[in-house]
Design a protein around this nucleic acid. Sequence first.
DNA 1: AAATAAATTGAGATACCGTATCGTTGAGAG
DNA 2: CTCTCAACGATACGGTATCTCAATTTATTT
Lengths: 140, 140
Amino acid sequence: MEDQEIRKAGLKVTAPRVKILELLENSEQRHVSAEDVYRMLLSANEDIGLATVYRVLTQFEEAGLVEKHHFEDGHSVFELNKGKHHDHIVCVTCGRVKEFVDETIEDRQKKIADELGFQISEHDLVIYGKCLDDACERKP
Amino acid sequence: MEDQEIRKAGLKVTAPRVKILELLENSEQRHVSAEDVYRMLLSANEDIGLATVYRVLTQFEEAGLVEKHHFEDGHSVFELNKGKHHDHIVCVTCGRVKEFVDETIEDRQKKIADELGFQISEHDLVIYGKCLDDACERKP
DNA sequence: AAATAAATTGAGATACCGTATCGTTGAGAG
DNA sequence: CTCTCAACGATACGGTATCTCAATTTATTT
Ligand SMILES: [Zn+2]
Ligand SMILES: [Zn+2]
Ligand SMILES: [Zn+2]
Ligand SMILES: [Zn+2]
């Protein structure tokens, strides 16, 4: 269960942590903000404070359970760590997010960092555009 | 002078706009935050409000005079628009920023957007790492 | 199972970046 | 020069995220 993962991360097993991890694993959307999580918890009648949501997500990030990304629209989004790196393409209209991996891009970045004298630690690549999905429309 | 550029952008030529544009053109650092600009203006004994700095930078961005980027450390940074697109590599220790252009990466992104059904509008690629500069150390 | 020490929680206060408001000032057209 | 409206500075405000703190809960030790 989730209990094991939480324990393995060096954290005590508490109701909020279990609920949030469950939620991330079962969520329709892979990429969710802290507010998204908070609202989902409210819908599920879970009495968990917003501060706790931020705290737990941050702890999960530090433990490597989740990753945090900054998209342009303002707030951070979190996603379960799948283990393999990927980048994102985001629809500027409907917010849909897709993931991709391109080894060529990855390799070029290593080369660039090398040439410019940087020991690369990570990178963020986000492509923004308009998706061609039929149901694409601005969110309320 | 700067007056021409501002006029060409469709904006009235006012002291704050001229001062801020001068500052961007003469600044040691190409990539500066609104707060940076504000502090530099204070140092130069210019009596310009922070709200005006934000306003003017935003107007410059809308006019295409400057570009705005989000790095991970929190606040936005602005830079004069050089006309040609480039990406950034940022030192996580000292904050040094270098620019690069890689046509291979640019091409791959177009291809990816195409394959995933997105009409690409822009992208943000930032590499983070530790620079090998002698004077690299965490800022106060 | 009860006691204990330490970590975690929720509510609210607080911090931070950036924007909106508003009365005053000043650019620039006529 | 006059007049009009954009732009200004100060300050209040908004949204996201963090901090504080008393009360609770966990997990370990009797
Ligand atoms: Zn869309
Ligand atoms: Zn992802
Ligand atoms: Zn740049
Ligand atoms: Zn450095």
